[in-house]
């Protein structure tokens, strides 16, 4: 299991491939991998967004991400999990978050991946500040899903 904050742009599929190749204990055991990749859009609330800053609470953010992933591994029978989340300055099209979950069968992988994302959205201390053509603005709420 790995949980990581990343201050620079990352390629989620390359990260996933690299991580999976290095997890020897996964080989031959997993039948299901569920993946969620969140990517920055160039619009929000009907207006163009040209950039974004992701602020976090150093210490608390890492602790809560770790707890969220651990809770998922307690609730479902998972073989492994990987979570990478950006902080700092982002551009449209930049990946924001990668969640990958490995299990023997699909039900646990799908459910755990979804649960990790929903918990992250509601509990992990991150705040988005968008750059727009009319100046910066804080994102005040999450979309329903």
């Amino acid at each position: 299991m790995r949980v990581e904050l990343r201050a620079t742009p990352f390629d989620p599929l390359a990260e996933l491939a690299r991580y999976q190749a290095n997890q020897r204990e996964l080989q031959g055991r997993y039948g299901a991998t569920a993946i969620f990749i969140g990517t920055m859009r160039d619009y929000n609330d009907q207006s163009p967004v040209t950039g974004m800053t992701l602020e976090h609470y150093p210490g608390m953010t890492e602790r809560h991400l770790q707890r969220i992933v651990t809770a998922a591994t307690d609730e479902w029978t998972l073989l492994d999990a990987l979570l990478i989340h950006r902080v700092g300055a982002l551009q449209p099209n930049d990946p924001i978050v990668l969640v990958a979950v490995w299990s023997a069968h699909r039900a646990a992988a799908f459910a755990a991946c979804r649960a990790i994302m929903e918990e992250l959205k509601s509990k992990a201390p991150f705040w988005k500040r968008e750059e727009t053509t009319t100046g910066p603005r804080w994102v005040t709420h999450n979309t329903p899903g």
Binding site: G38, L54, H56, Y57, M60, H85, I96, V97, M117, L120, K121, S122, K123, A124, P125, F126, W127, K128, W138, V139, T140, H141, N142
Partner: peptide
């Protein structure tokens, strides 16, 4: 003690 607005990550 920290005070902050609703979180908007992910």
């Amino acid at each position: 003690v920290a005070f902050f607005p609703p979180v908007t990550g992910g």
